[in-house]
Design a protein around this nucleic acid. Structure first.
Lengths: 157, 157
DNA sequence: ACGCCCATGTAAGGGGTTACATGATTGC
DNA sequence: GCAATCATGTAACCCCTTACATGGGCGT
């Protein structure tokens, strides 16, 4: 792809869950060329365009990263890794979903714990109603997330 | 509160949806003192502690910000504003929930639109399975979010 | 041929993170 | 009294955003 095409991807497909602009893309492409992750070529017609190609080292870096376990505290890592999985039968897919499931099970337990400790009595809730709503919403979201993950995992098998 | 107490809040209650560290807190407190949003005093015992107090200008800045309509593209603004609403009958609460509802209704429509345009045929889905899952998950999440918002709004009235 | 947009690039500024640093207080 | 940790503060670095900048292609 060209840098411009990548930029377009970030305004459409990828942009749904990861954002950047050409000001980051071009220097980053340059960096990756220097690191031998990718290479580029130009053609006779449209001499300004640079066509970038993934190099073996870049491919292995990508696979390495995909295999690295998900870290907590970054919700964006899961969709980003998921994006690079093309086929339904990729072993990494089940793996990723299970990792995400485990992380969010922990998260839900933590949130429920917070709810009982922070809002032990009714008065605390009444005097911090917004805060209470945030927690309730987070718990509902995680519950729904877990149900989606479980459902999706079941469908794969 | 003291800077240290604020730091602790960011590791507990606030930290659930907004993060920072003392390295940002102390300079920011300094800035707010300079802008007359807050003031501080020290006591005889524990001379190192600085007790900060909200000033009228800071209070009005806060209220001003709370009244400012939610902007799209920042999921963190809603919980943060919600946090500052203490009581169930605050008129801003219904207002906030309605704004968030409107924003996420738009978002859901957009996501459903994306799903049909990007994955028009079965082959595209089969060859970009991860990407497809991301979109399905986002749609489910937004659907759940809308249902929570609607439910919560109904309960308030 | 000329104006507009495409494709690429650079620069400046802001904010956040990590690491470094120091004096006061508390506990044994 | 001395060590640990509390409370405050600063510095360096990285990344992201916004703005500035330029030459090549395309349409009329």
């Amino acid at each position: 792809m060209t840098g411009s095409e990548i930029d377009t991807e970030f305004q459409n497909d990828i942009g749904e869950f990861w954002q950047t602009t050409h000001s980051q893309i071009y220097p980053e492409l340059k960096r990756m060329v220097a690191d031998d992750w990718i290479s580029f070529e130009t053609t006779e017609q449209d001499k300004k365009k640079k066509w970038y190609y993934l190099q073996p080292l870049g491919e292995s870096e990508l696979q390495q990263w995909l295999k690295t376990p998900l870290t907590a505290n970054t919700d964006e890592e899961f969709p980003l890794k998921l994006f690079f999985i093309q086929y339904r039968d990729d072993a990494l897919l089940t793996n990723l979903l299970q990792q995400e499931l485990a992380l969010h099970q922990e998260k839900l337990i933590h949130l429920k714990q917070r709810l009982t400790t922070v809002f032990a009595d009714e008065a605390t809730k009444d005097n911090n109603y917004g805060h209470h709503l945030i927690l309730k919403r987070a718990i509902e979201r995680e519950t729904n997330n877990l149900s989606w993950l479980t459902k999706t995992l079941a469908r794969l098998n």
